[in-house]
Computed example of a mutant assay.
Amino acid sequence: MPQDVRFDLPFTTPVSGHLHSAREQHLRWVWEMGLVRSEAAFEEYQSWDLPQAAIRTYPYANAEDMVVLMNWFSLAFLFDDQFDAARPDRADRVAEVARELIATPLRPVGSKPRVECPITVAWAQVWERLAEGMSLAWRSRFAASWGRFLVAHTEEVDLAARGGHLGLEEYVGFRRRTVGIHHSIDAGERARRFEVPAQAQAHPVLIGLRDAAADAIGFMNDVHSFEREKRRGDGHNLITVLHRDRGHSLADAEAEAIRMTNERLADYLEFEARIPEMCEELGLSYEDRRRVDMGVEAAQHWINGNYEWALTTGRYAAVKESAAATAELQGRGSLDDLLTV
């Protein structure tokens, strides 16, 4: 099964020791914020084990920040599940909520959401903590990456509502935005309390590195989540696109998706090897070079951490036994409606 597919990643990354205490606080917060509204949904949500993803992708966050990062993780995943391919009538509401999520980082910190539902109220609270202590430059960069991710999400919803499909070339560029890795790497700076210098962020080498990381992670996710998305009728998956657009059998499409993933991992390594040359070209100080290196580590944490989590998470499991999963297998894209009060 695709979730069992292994990739030979070129590095290992550390794991935070804050799992147990942070997970307990996080799960309590998810329930209290109304992000799960039934026991079945809570059971299913726990099977995803997002706290494991957080401790692997942000291994240097302190105990308090780890809770914030786990809380943030829940919002992106739960919002992603709010669109059901069998209910195109929800597209307008998804877009309305997405606009509110995009606007939150652009308003004064602590502003009350203008569109209220569990997702927007929780995001306003989380953003207040994420923005804490970070510069305007970082907040603006995060907001831009977050906005591109959410705009792409609404485009995906609209495309599915109209019964449209993307060809392979279009999908590759689109997936780079929907995977949400750019702002996730940005959050790695917040987790470790540093900022990559602006001139390095704007350099083609670092841009290429982040894009390659996003593609590799997106493609790996598509391989590991294929069974889940197939049963939901979700065509936003590289294997499905290769099968439909290129006429591959599913087995050949899976093999090609794996090849494309490995190709982008190789591209990532090439960009990483050019980082010292980039720092020299920019004339960066020792301290700025150290921040660049930590930014590269943030990308590594996401590549490896997300991969390790994807191999075991119940979110991508092909066979589910819980009551919540049974409801999903019957055609529900989301277990609880989080877009209404």
Score class of each variant (00 low, 15 high):
R6D: 11
D8S: 15
D8Q: 12
L9N: 04
L9D: 05
T12P: 06
T13Q: 10
P14F: 10
L19A: 10
H20A: 15
R23M: 11
L27G: 06
L27H: 13
W29T: 01
W29G: 00
E32Q: 14
L35V: 02
V36I: 13
R37G: 05
E39T: 11
F42E: 07
Y45P: 01
Q46R: 14
A54N: 04
Y58D: 00
P59F: 03
Y60C: 11
A63E: 13
E64I: 09
D65V: 02
V68R: 02
M70E: 05
M70T: 06
N71K: 06
L75F: 06
A76L: 14
F77I: 14
D81L: 10
D84K: 03
R87I: 11
V94Y: 05
L101V: 08
A103V: 07
L106V: 09
P108Y: 08
K112E: 14
E116A: 15
V121L: 13
V121C: 09
R129M: 01
L136T: 15
L136I: 12
R139I: 03
S140P: 04
A143N: 01
S145M: 04
G147T: 08
R148L: 10
R148I: 10
L168F: 12
L168P: 00
L168S: 08
E169R: 14
H182R: 07
H183Q: 13
A187C: 14
A191P: 00
R192D: 13
V196L: 05
A198C: 08
A200P: 03
A200Q: 03
G218L: 02
G218T: 00
V223I: 15
V223D: 02
E227I: 05
R231C: 05
H236F: 08
D245G: 09
H248M: 15
A251I: 11
A253L: 06
A257S: 15
R259L: 06
T261N: 04
N262Y: 02
L265D: 02
L269E: 12
L269H: 08
A273K: 12
R274L: 12
I275C: 06
I275N: 02
E277Y: 09
M278A: 07
E280I: 10
E280Q: 14
Y286W: 09
V292T: 04
M294K: 13
Q300R: 15
Q300I: 01
Q300F: 05
H301V: 07
A310R: 02
A327Y: 09
G331Y: 10
S334P: 08
D337M: 13
L338K: 01
L339V: 04
